[in-house]
Design a protein around this nucleic acid. Structure first.
Length: 503
RNA sequence: GUCCCCAUCGUCCAGAGGCCUAGGACGCGGCCCUUUCAAGGCUGAAACCCGGGUUCGAAUCCCGGUGGGGACGCCA
């Protein structure tokens, strides 16, 4: 089995295309086949080397390694269509000579006008076949005279083209609804339908798994296989991925590219796992499975027929699972850029700074949806302003609670008499003392402490936050982290701000 | 407009004629756990698009309707 993913390097890798790549990859892995990456860059105006690189990076990030293709070995190259121009020219010649294709001299403007007219008249827009009857020698003479021409496939009239789609079953098209497709453009570049067929055939592709948007191209391609006398591969058309409003996923729905999800702090294994769940089920009610296990169970016959809505909430849930399972050192590495963006990490992190990150990041990552949420949860460690906090209405409201001030006063005293609270035990111990002094417990006790120390009512568990603050406060200035004020000072400052603000 | 594809909870899936009083997951509500915030556990509400057939029996098969999507490019 040989399958391929053939993106066009005209932008970032879209999640819908990433899913197509994934399904191809899963199928190849499942059957011990070969997964090939081919670049379809025949649109010179829109294709860029940067896009190709971005797609390569995204595929590698997702873990979808290819066995053959650009930047890999393989005996069926080149794998970039722009490097196969002589091959297409040779095959176009073959079709022309065999009478399966012909030259068309209609200008793009003429064609566009005809298309508009047909649309306006409620007719299916389709090439009328104007140049089809031109005698070969007449056409050759016009070409020799320098007249621009395209090469079109002569689609046989009155026939049915059918194929058995591996996911949808039998599909039938009538050739009467197919206009003669352009094979070679006037500038000599091959057109999509022509290049794919030549490449898939020459690269010995056995299964073409692609988006449903290509289903109507399939009859044209089948006709080409027939013209060449080649045996076509098996086809499988995947339903499309939609946005929440059931419209094609687009920028207006938020993130749509793999790169954007990576930038938002989703783990590659999470995105890949989630993508596999759109239109397919690993079975037995299981959903959270690693790529190799998904591959072990993958089966085209069980791929769904209807379009799937991309649900970022569910992606986040999958991501949470992998965030909890990720190795601590990796989490720190992945989170550092997000922390740097917020100014928490500054420059080179020292061993002490790194130790601090390894203390706080893994447990924090286990409680958020994505890595980009981590700076928010850690924000309070480095930013604290008692006066500003007390000026907030929500914080003031907290301290209007009957015993809140007593808690802060006791906390300030307790902390003043203690060393830094650098672990959970010493923190709990300090809380126990505040509890003993105030006789309060539960929310009445912890919430004022939280607000007094962080200036906000929400955030990570105090068991982690407080030690994180005091450890950060002990760090030398060159640790690579922003400076932090310790809890002892915070409690005192809050008390002072409260006193200054009056009852 | 023409052709093609599709149609189970809000969303993603399970369901290949009786196992369906339609199952799981996300999200949502409730409860539990928790000296705070989350997380986690348990639990609840929530769907077979409509109409005809076929059959002893249909979410499952057939036809029609409706709805959604795709294609109709010198884009891929």
């Amino acid at each position: 089995m040989r399958v391929r993913f053939a993106p066009s390097p005209t932008g970032h890798l879209h999640v819908g295309n990433a899913r197509t790549a994934l399904f191809n990859w899963l199928l190849a892995r499942r059957h011990g086949g070969t997964f090939i990456l081919r670049i379809e860059d025949t649109d010179v105006d829109r294709s860029t080397a940067a896009s190709e690189q971005a797609i390569v990076d995204d595929l590698q990030w997702l873990g979808l390694v290819w066995d053959e293709g650009i930047a890999a070995a393989g005996g069926h190259g080149p794998y970039r269509q722009s490097e196969r121009l002589d091959i297409y020219a040779r095959h176009a010649r073959q079709l022309l000579d065999a009478g399966h294709a012909y030259r068309c001299f209609c200008s793009a403007e003429t064609l566009e006008a005809a298309r508009q007219a047909q649309l306006a008249a409620g007719q299916p827009p389709r090439y009328a076949g104007t140049c089809r009857g031109l005698a070969p020698d007449v056409a050759a003479a016009r070409v020799a005279a320098g007249e621009p021409a395209v090469v079109r496939l002569a689609v046989p009239a009155g026939r049915e083209v059918r194929f058995t789609d591996l996911v949808r079953g039998d599909v039938t098209f009538h050739t009467d609804v197919i206009g003669d497709p352009i094979l070679v453009r006037s500038d000599g570049m091959p057109a999509y339908n022509f290049a794919v067929v030549v490449d898939d055939a020459l690269m010995a592709i056995t299964h073409v798994v692609r988006g449903e948007d290509h289903i109507s191209n399939t009859p044209r391609q089948l006709l080409l296989y027939e013209a060449f006398g080649w045996t076509p591969p098996a086809f499988a058309h995947l339903s499309l991925v939609m946005g929440p409003d059931h419209a094609p996923l687009s920028k207006r729905h938020g993130a749509t590219s793999v790169a954007e999800f990576r930038a938002k702090g989703y783990l590659p294994e999470a995105l890949a796992n989630y993508l596999a769940l759109i239109g397919w089920s690993p079975g037995e009610g299981e959903e959270l499975l690693p790529l190799d296990e998904l591959a072990r169970r993958f089966d085209l016959a069980h791929v769904g027929h209807s379009a799937g809505v991309f649900d970022e909430d569910k992606l986040a849930w999958v991501n949470r699972h992998y965030l909890k399972a990720a190795a601590p050192a990796r989490l720190v590495d992945l989170t550092t850029p997000f922390l740097a963006d917020r100014g928490v990490v500054r420059g080179t992190v020292s061993a002490a700074g790194r130790a601090w990150l390894e203390f706080v990041v893994p447990p924090t990552a286990g409680a958020v949806d994505r890595l980009s949420d981590i700076p928010d949860r850690l924000h309070a460690v480095f930013a604290f302003d008692a006066r500003a906090a007390v000026a907030q209405s929500s914080v003031r409201a907290e301290f209007e609670q009957p015993d809140a001030r007593r808690v802060v006063a006791a906390l300030a005293e307790v902390l003043a008499a203690r060393p830094r609270l650098v672990d959970r035990e010493t923190f709990r111990d300090a809380v126990a003392e505040v509890r003993a002094r105030t006789g309060l417990k539960g929310r009445a006790l912890l919430h004022p402490i939280r607000v007094a120390l962080t200036g906000a009512g929400e955030g990570p568990e105090l068991d982690l936050l407080v030690p994180a603050i005091d450890r950060a406060a002990e760090l030398p200035g060159e640790a690579g982290l922003a400076p932090a004020v310790g809890c002892r000072e915070r409690a005192a400052a809050t008390m002072a701000a409260l006193d200054a603000a009056g009852p």
